[in-house]
């Protein structure tokens, strides 16, 4: 379980001081998949980085599986916006990187790459891959850690529609397989509804929780075409629009 309690994040000092996140609290239960959505630049990524232990909150607490977060943890994996592949490492070296940095045995990489459709590309460099394949290598890197918690920072940003839907379906399939606790940050409403059992809507900066939408229907690839999906999307859109108008 992830528990975020009265989280407050500030950047800079003096005149350059900005309040990025103001008093955000929420919980993600074990095995639950939750989407955080809000306008661009509202502080979503800051919240995710704080949960990962990369940035220190000004106040408030973050607890993952009973332990307060004080740095990067071995049971938490993070997928960055553009997959963050290192161009000087091959597909396999990129996929192994997190294990290597944490000095853990590099096992099971081959199976993970194959299950993501990357078999046969192990020795290629990122420059030789399509954008969709690069994102899958980023997912492989996170998956190799066999994490309990998956933090995803817009892993589908800047992809064409079909590739984006394909990666969304891969993430959904992995969630069913591994039942990890997932927290997805996105500004794409349909993506949030497709992947989030709950959708937490944040205000423009400084971020506060505006509303939480329950979305029990998610879980199948077909959900995208259902009436309920459209209803939840419409509701989320309305709330986000009213935030912009304020």
């Amino acid at each position: 379980m992830i528990s975020v309690e009265a989280l407050r994040i500030e950047y800079g000092r003096g005149r350059r001081h900005t309040l990025a996140v103001e008093e955000v609290s929420f919980r993600v239960e074990d095995g639950e998949s939750v989407a955080l959505i809000g306008p661009s630049g509202c502080g979503k990524t800051s919240i995710l980085l704080a949960i990962d232990g990369i940035i220190r909150p000004a106040s408030g607490r973050i607890i993952i599986r009973g332990e307060e977060v004080r740095g990067v943890r071995r049971d938490v994996a993070f997928i960055t916006q553009d997959a963050g592949l290192l161009p000087w490492k091959t597909v396999r070296q990129n996929a192994e990187l997190a294990l290597r940095l944490q000095r853990r045995p590099r096992e099971g990489i081959q199976e993970i790459l194959r299950s993501l459709g990357l078999g046969g590309f192990e020795n290629r460099y990122p420059a030789e891959l399509s954008e969709g394949m690069r994102r899958r290598v980023g997912i492989a890197r996170a998956l190799a850690l066999r994490p309990e918690v998956f933090l995803m920072d817009e892993p589908m940003a800047n992809l064409d529609t079909l590739t984006r839907e394909r990666i969304q379906e891969i993430i959904l399939r992995l969630w069913h397989m591994y039942r990890f606790t997932g927290l997805l940050v996105t500004h794409d409403i349909e993506e949030a509804v497709f992947l989030g059992q709950r959708i937490i809507i944040l205000s423009p900066r400084p971020a506060r929780v505006v509303e939480v939408i329950e979305n029990p229907g998610m879980g199948e690839a077909e959900y995208r075409r259902s009436e309920e999906f459209y209803r939840v999307v419409a509701r989320a859109r309305e709330i986000l629009k009213s935030l912009e108008e304020k």
Binding site: I54, R73, F78, T80, A83, L85, L97, A98, L101, Q102
Partner: peptide
Amino acid sequence: LAVRTAGA
């Protein structure tokens, strides 16, 4: 960011 989130 990619290597820091991986614990480098």
